[in-house]
Write a protein that binds this DNA or RNA. Structure first.
Lengths: 168, 168
DNA sequence: TTAAGTGCAAATCTTTTGCCACCCT
DNA sequence: AGGGTGGCAAAAGATTTGCACTTAA
């Protein structure tokens, strides 16, 4: 707890940023705004992370995010990456997933959507479907619970259009 | 890969053992049978793990499983626990989950069911619902994928029957 | 007999932290 | 000025692995 910052009040908020498919530049602006709201210093490193996050369209792990950050600022440390991601996660700016099992993978929190992991390539496809929310809320209620959150991940193999050589 | 064993052929099979709510003794018998099928030596330690797995009705992590195993055989090592669980997982005998984030949690693979994590107590409630399978298969197909597997976890807070003091 | 299995400790890997210098506000 | 921050390296925690010894088949 050497870096408690003043997140306490903004901790655990459920709001997601209204980031759909806006251009990176706009995301950057929005993330900086979020930092201002959080009363975080706008340090050079923080800005680098923001830039990396804004340009992501996949779900990289911490190591990969660090690598990308290093391409902008070669001396940024892993600790900073972890600390920043951790703060951003608690503030609801990014979401951390545990897809494979190895290391956590991140993405910008952008409203409710789900993931389909391509077992062949490891790629993650995002998709939306409002059907689940109501259905799952009902399921939880039947067991006596208020649905706070849920995780839904599909694992699939790409359908082969016709006869194609399959790997492996 | 110093212990490749002969799992290769039985690797990645999708079949789950038909273990519903059968008594522990029967589970033990069934797991031993599975070991025979896998051509695994029936060592003392392996039997201890089987016994522990058979008596579980929760979702303990490796450390907890080791602790329980130690109550039967105090000299069983963590390495053995990990190695055995790993083999069992690859053979489809147990399933490993990443609920919290800390360490993996295990359970006997017993057909399709889902989890609702009680945010208040950390307890995990299992439930079944055949509705999802067809629905998700369709969703995946719409994106051009064959649904191989999926993960669905609900996080909820227990509904308070009436007026009760809430924690936090 | 002999390959699989085990224990132990060291090695990996990911993520967190203590400490101190430094920069943003 | 002063507290939030970043870097570095050590720490922590989970899981894996090399090696020599046991043991099931």
């Amino acid at each position: 707890m050497s870096h408690p910052s003043k997140l306490s009040s903004l901790d655990r908020k459920n709001t997601c940023l209204p980031i759909g498919h806006m251009p990176p530049g706009e995301k950057v602006r929005m993330l900086i705004e979020a930092c201002v709201a959080l009363r975080l210093h706008r340090s050079r490193q923080r800005h680098v992370v923001i830039q990396v996050l804004s340009e992501m369209d996949d779900h990289p792990d911490s190591r990969e995010i660090h690598r990308r950050a290093c391409m902008i600022d070669p001396k940024i440390s892993v600790a900073t990456i972890y600390r920043t991601l951790s703060i951003f996660e608690r503030a609801g700016i990014v979401t951390r997933h545990d897809f494979g099992g190895e290391s956590g993978r991140y993405e910008l929190a952008s409203g409710r959507h789900h993931h389909l992991v391509d077992r062949r390539s490891g790629k993650v496809v995002d998709f939306q479907d409002g059907t689940f929310d109501a259905l799952l809320k009902r399921v939880a209620a039947e067991m006596g619970y208020d649905l706070v959150d849920y995780r839904l991940e599909l694992y699939g193999e790409p359908e082969l259009p016709a006869g194609m050589s399959s790997g492996s």
